[in-house]
Amino acid sequence: MKVVEINDVFKTYHDTEVEVKAVNGVTLSFEKGDFAVIVGPSGSGKTTLLNLIGGLDQPTAGEIIVAGHRLSELKPSELIDFRMEHVGFVFQSYNLIPVLTASENVGFIMSLQKWPKEKRMARTGELLEAVGLSDRHSSRPAQLSGGQQQRVAVARALAPRPQFILADEPTANLDTKSAETLLDIMEKLNRGEEMTFIFSTHDARVVKRARRVITLEDGKVVSDERTNHTS
């Protein structure tokens, strides 16, 4: 089953004098349960592509369809609701709301979606357990390490069961051990929750673990390989 369809998508920036074709004719699709990584040198368009898929930005040309929604047809406020309902985001850093505890952060999107309190609490407990932080319910982000913060961010993204999770270089600021732990957790959730993960990286540790590797260069897909390894 296709979760994301990208048809001949372009994204051109002309902030400065020169035109930058950040995404230059990409056609791709992602299946439910994918554990896909987008690699490529800095400036190759990874972040731009993820932003387009997540409905943070609109393409200059081409079509993106997520869970039956044509993103170009949504109004700005509808796009926000679309993201709340269908997309989980994990950013490179500054993911969490500093004044909320770990469990409040995990519950945040569920409370935007107006989940009843009981269900929300149960789901939060389950996920904090899954990311190995069941003893840190009431810690504020500042009291957690970088790796722990990313794990809370993954739990938050996953909590309301979105269509997929987009993670833009989630391990970029982590040491090897924390990065491995985060990847272990994401793999486990990919299988256990059948959650689709799409992330970008130029971290070899991440590439090694992916089951699908898409390589971008100058905004174009230069290779799309499925590796059948299980770790």
Partner: peptide, 14 residues
Amino acid sequence: RREFGMLVSIGMQK
């Protein structure tokens, strides 16, 4: 600003 960007990204209406 960054935090606001994050909040709107994950689905908080402006």
